[in-house]
């Protein structure tokens, strides 16, 4: 048993080797150990969704995953998907619709919205709301966020913007 655990993982395509405290969760690891400040700590008990990141391609709550458990994992954050251009259209739509107000929930919202559109390319508004229901926006700008996601879904499907 040791308090510090050696891990090697891939973060946004780059190999990273670190020693981490056993209790260090993924978001603190990203922010404090790697300096990737795009993933936000909100409630830190799995409620608010501000810390949403991808592990092995699936979205997770970064605060409910221990960094120590991620040896060998592939982690993607908002920095990675921004640089790759994967969610450029979602980001543009969030800006156009003023769906990012204070911006605190935005990285989590974007990754959750991208996850929805991956699994369900043509969601209804109710399905968008359902999928985003685990992400709190404390500016309460939900309507603009749902509009932005609906607009991107429509555009990707070659339909007129609703």
């Amino acid at each position: 048993m040791s308090a510090e655990i050696a891990i090697t993982l891939t973060v946004n395509g780059e190999r990273v080797a670190r020693r981490v405290e056993a209790r260090r969760h993924l978001v603190d690891f990203l922010r404090l150990d790697l300096g990737l400040m795009g993933s936000h700590t909100g409630c830190e008990h799995g409620f608010c969704g501000a810390c949403t990141v991808r592990v092995n391609g699936a979205i997770v709550r970064g605060c409910l995953v221990l960094a120590a458990s991620l040896d060998g994992a592939q982690v993607e954050t908002i920095e990675g998907v921004s640089d790759s251009g994967e969610i450029r259209d979602l980001q543009d739509a969030f800006i156009a619709r003023n769906a990012a107000q204070c911006g605190y929930c935005t990285p989590g919202m974007l990754l959750t919205a991208a996850d929805l559109l991956k699994h369900n390319p043509a969601p209804t508004r109710a399905q968008i709301r359902e999928h985003l229901s685990g992400n709190y926006c404390r500016c309460t700008g939900y309507h603009a966020i749902v509009d932005a996601v609906a607009a991107v879904a429509a555009k990707r499907n070659g339909r007129a913007t609703p």
Partner: peptide, 12 residues
């Protein structure tokens, strides 16, 4: 399953 928490939690 869809009633259990949210997608990010259901993945883990």
């Amino acid at each position: 399953v869809p009633l259990i928490a949210h997608a990010a939690v259901r993945n883990r």
